[in-house]
């Protein structure tokens, strides 16, 4: 396989996963504030959405909702906007379209066309639900064609690697964002209900709310939430699940360049040590832990890039 092709496959996975998390977060965050146990604080919500989207958008005199949508969803000049990310995924696919199935290419291209034909002026809060649902359907379709229409050889594993690297990063970003929201609210002396509601939003943002309730009916504890997000390897959005899949992908790629064995060894050792973290009550320690894991993932990304794409 060409190095360039491997690179593009990996980024198809990353961009798709990124678009999925961003649009889901947008939906959950926005709707969660419409039915809350406290007075609505829209600016807070919008700030949170911006934080997740990785934009440093500054607005004079209060945050304008329409500007946020533009920035987070539509703006092609913002590399983190949902449309930019989808455009990139499509460019990745287009540049290697003969290495992927026709079905996969067409499903990605359809999502791109959906976005490029979307009428930004007509967008408003009333459209958020439909928009994010459409995104979800398109991306589910694409993931299904990845699963079912290409050989599960190196090509498939590079896409999956990108997908799980991105998933672990996005989940960590969401967790980090929510810890930050939580601290701001605590410092401002907000009521307990609002603070604890942030954990509900966190779970919903990673589609883990129902799952958590099933695992721990009626018992919301920060420790249990973090344990599920970090260590439950049966939960598809957990760190453990993503890391297992990254490891499996690396092992399944048929080509093992120099440095491969050392990388796998260090990967196993560090991942194992991450599982022994226990200080979930201490917010600062959790944050530090999250930072460590993010660094760990960036290191994996760099290793993959150095070994295969350069």
């Amino acid at each position: 396989m060409l190095s360039r092709v491997a690179d593009s496959l990996y980024w198809i996975g990353r961009n798709l996963e990124r678009a999925e998390h961003c649009s889901r977060f947008l939906k959950v965050q926005y709707f969660s504030t419409l039915d809350t146990p406290m007075i609505r604080n829209k600016d807070f919500t919008l700030r949170s959405i911006m934080f997740m989207a990785g934009t440093n958008f500054q607005s004079q005199g209060g945050i304008m909702e329409q500007e946020i949508w533009k920035n987070v969803i539509f703006d092609i000049n913002n590399p983190n906007s949902i449309f930019s990310v989808i455009k990139n995924a499509r460019e990745n696919a287009r540049s290697i379209r003969n290495s992927i199935s026709t079905e996969l290419w067409e499903s990605i291209n359809k999502l791109y066309l959906y976005c490029s034909n979307y009428e930004e002026q007509k967008f408003s809060a009333g459209k958020i639900y439909d928009f994010t649902e459409d995104m979800r359907t398109h991306i589910a379709m694409i993931k299904s064609t990845i699963q079912n229409t290409i050989l599960h050889d190196d090509c498939y594993h590079f896409i999956k690697l990108g997908l799980f690297v991105e998933r672990s990063i996005q989940v960590l970003r969401i967790v980090r964002g929510k810890i930050s929201d939580w601290s701001i609210l605590s410092e401002n002396g907000m009521n307990k209900a609002l603070i604890s509601y942030q954990w509900t939003i966190l779970l919903k943002s990673i589609e883990g709310f129902d799952i958590y309730n099933k695992l721990h009916p009626g018992k919301k504890s920060i420790e249990n939430i973090f344990r599920m997000i970090f260590m439950n390897d049966l939960f598809p959005r957990s760190m453990a699940y993503s890391l297992n899949n990254i490891r499996m992908g690396l092992r399944k790629i048929s080509v093992r360049p120099q440095g491969y064995d050392a990388m796998i060894e260090s990967f196993d050792k560090k991942t194992l040590s991450m599982q022994s973290f226990d200080d979930f009550d201490d917010e600062d320690k959790v944050l530090e832990y999250v930072h460590q894991v993010i660094e760990r993932i960036s290191k994996i990304h760099n290793d993959i890039a150095n070994m295969y794409f350069n």
């Binding site: 396989m1 060409l2 190095s3 360039r4 491997a6 190196d154 048929s254 080509v255 360049p257 295969y308």
Partner: peptide, 18 residues
Amino acid sequence: EGRDLYVENDKVYLKSIG
């Protein structure tokens, strides 16, 4: 693309991962 190929001893090769 051009950047995917290189020439060594007057033979043309792919820049591949393996």
